[in-house]
Design a protein around this nucleic acid. Structure first.
Lengths: 220, 220
DNA sequence: GTCATCATGTAAGCCGTTACATGATTGC
DNA sequence: GCAATCATGTAACGGCTTACATGATGAC
């Protein structure tokens, strides 16, 4: 879960822990943003596993210029930074980059099934690193899951005991789920329009029984 | 969190652990239903804390309130003794009932601030045990939180780097939040219609700055 | 008599948090 | 030089899950 977030962000850009947290925050919102207490150990673990690697901060990313204050031992500092390529930058910073192994791991994490509400948002945020087939599988797998959930919400055992608040909760939950399914339908349609050669039939095995009518019918 | 769920369910009916889990499942859906591994320790903890109490299974469903007259008549003493003596029913079942202390604890848990997405649903499910003022405070507190979240989603720092998937995610998140706010507005309106004497001004201190226009404008 | 279900618990471990400790760099 | 921010980590802990262990009851 946190591995996916880290690798997904590092795939777009080399970053150190502090920046990583900021980027995750702006990507995922203040909620579901990780804390340092889990971020740094996770980075250390990923480094041990060979999925990420400390890189030279000065060559990390072109768009982040390091302001060399120049006057005091500028050349010496630059030299030292250049020599100790794999340790830390000027400010104790440890800039991480994703390795090839890490990219494979990211692909695995993006493709593996079992998405709850939180991991789906994360996967969607990084799904550009998937091919069209993988994306369709992701979307349709999620859709099937929501359809199943909608079925359960509608079955609603024990609903006769509900007071009006619980009833309202259930109704709103139903609306939300329908809205989510309609949204996924739009994503799926856009994906199929972008790649007309794949129909997702192979990718979405087992989801063929999903009933289009359960989406609440926003299509005429 | 789990305490709230347990006490809320036990307030409506005496139950043993197994049934409690089933009831929670049908109340909250398969998601966010607790596992035995957390339910039983929680029940034991609540029993040690005096919030719940093992009761005689044969009188369990009657839900007879304990007479709190203070003076121990012979009858009440006998009842209490009988109630305390019985630990488990025929089948090793241990039926729990909520105590007065537990009801106070439930009221505390329902009223205390700090609701994330999950605890709000739980509170709403049991908010009938709150008075009108408490309910309004709950709804309006949640509304203020969602308005703040909407503001953050719309600010969206770093959104210029987003690909279309992240953009779609943000848009859908915005729609969802707007829909949630509109739903809360309906709940609030219904609550105020039911109790015209309270306007929630005192209960919702600090939420007066919420702008009705931020709801997406489903009102003409 | 044995199998599914009901019923209660314990143990190990994961995943993440908060709080704490430490130090570098920049701005004033 | 001093505070604010940047930056990295460790320690303690909490809550919840899975897996395991145990046993009662009823259907057949």
């Amino acid at each position: 879960m946190i591995d996916l977030a880290i690798l997904g962000v590092l795939k777009e850009q080399d970053l150190h822990g502090y920046e990583l947290k900021k980027r995750l925050r702006e990507l995922l919102g203040p909620l579901s943003s990780v804390s340092f207490g889990s971020l740094y150990p996770a980075l250390a673990r990923l480094e041990r596993a060979g999925a990420v690697q400390a890189v030279d901060a000065s060559v990390a990313t072109a768009r982040v210029p390091i302001p060399m204050t120049g006057s005091l031992t500028g050349e010496a500092a630059a030299f030292r930074a250049a020599r100790r390529r794999v340790t830390r930058g000027r400010r104790g910073k440890k800039v991480y980059g994703i390795t090839e192994q890490g990219e494979r791991r990211l692909a695995e994490l993006l493709a593996e099934p079992g998405d709850d509400d939180r991991t789906f948002a994360l996967r969607l945020a990084f799904c550009r690193h998937l091919d069209g087939t993988g994306r369709l599988a992701l979307f349709q797998g999620r859709r099937a899951q929501l359809v199943e959930r909608l079925r359960e919400v509608r079955r609603a055992p024990g609903a006769e005991r509900d007071d009006r608040y619980v009833r309202s909760l259930r109704e709103h939950d139903e609306d939300r789920t329908e809205s989510d399914i309609a949204w996924l339908d739009r994503l799926i349609a856009a994906e199929q329009a972008a790649s007309p050669d794949i129909d997702g039939a192979a990718a979405a095995a087992g989801t063929a029984d999903t009933d289009p009518r359960t989406t609440g019918g926003d299509n005429p």
